[in-house]
Nucleic acid binder design. Sequence first.
DNA 1: TCAAATCCTATCCAATAGGTAGGAACTGAG
DNA 2: CTCAGTTCCTACCTATTGGATAGGATTTGA
Lengths: 157, 157
Amino acid sequence: MLSQRGRYALKALLHLGRSGGEPRGVTAIAASEQIPRKYLEAIMSELRRAELVESTRGWSGGYRLAKPADLITFGEIIRLTDGPLALLPCASRNFYKRCEDCVDEAACALRRVMASVRNQVAEILDRTTLADAIAGSPASRALLDAEPVDPGSADTA
Amino acid sequence: MLSQRGRYALKALLHLGRSGGEPRGVTAIAASEQIPRKYLEAIMSELRRAELVESTRGWSGGYRLAKPADLITFGEIIRLTDGPLALLPCASRNFYKRCEDCVDEAACALRRVMASVRNQVAEILDRTTLADAIAGSPASRALLDAEPVDPGSADTA
DNA sequence: TCAAATCCTATCCAATAGGTAGGAACTGAG
DNA sequence: CTCAGTTCCTACCTATTGGATAGGATTTGA
Ligand code: FES
Ligand code: FES
């Protein structure tokens, strides 16, 4: 399960994606998405430091996406807020860490299974963008149907 | 990421699966898998209460699997030790819980994406058994081989 | 009877999640 | 210039959880 913080971040970013390029204030987002205002403030600050959003202060300031919505993937957001997608450190690509107590990593049965899980998860989350989700997620729908992916069709961005 | 506890449980169960039907004591498992003995003791107790393993006490006692290794799936183990497979409560089948702050769940873009992730994860974990993993995971290998193209590299080799 | 095993209850500690408080700094409208 | 509305920053709080240990009661075969 991802953290509430991560869920809020995703909801806020989707909100921004829906709002075109207009800056939206934290207060507006918080009210609209039912997120505690002060908490969201901290989250947006983190997203800004990670350069997923840009901010303008003062008068009619607020936040907007730093990139087009079809260039921001769920994968990068979740990795930012919740860390690894993998179920085990040894099965993660971006946050790899050795399992101290596993004698032979290459032969570890557990790791093999978890690596395949990670691959499937990353496949979806790194391909699905905010724009996809907003549009009704055509990309993830293809994956949802559990058909082996046909490389020729269903091109995203 | 799953908890250390969950990882220990999986390692212990795999160990039992490899040991045929002979009971293995906690001390033996702990030493062999490099798990803190007293901690593993508590974990095994939980697995027994969940009827994944059976125990015999006294002289040459220990634990053994309560069912054949090809009838115990990773899914049920992980759900027991770490709860939901899904990334969001609203995307979980077995631990479903409504998102209080989401107005219209049926229209929630976030939920759609997360539901597709959950389906893929459950697909693997509910099909892969301890026996599969021990045998070199033929089931998960099939899924692993379905791994499509890397988004960053040249398409359709 | 004794040693080895499971079983049970109670702690303990550090880290994290989730959130709040209060205010400094910026910025356009008036 | 002033002011309201905004982001920004630091600090703090509390409950829960993860990970583990302590100490012993209970069972059981050699
Ligand atoms: S190497 Fe990570 S579980 Fe074995
Ligand atoms: S319904 Fe769960 S995130 Fe919207």
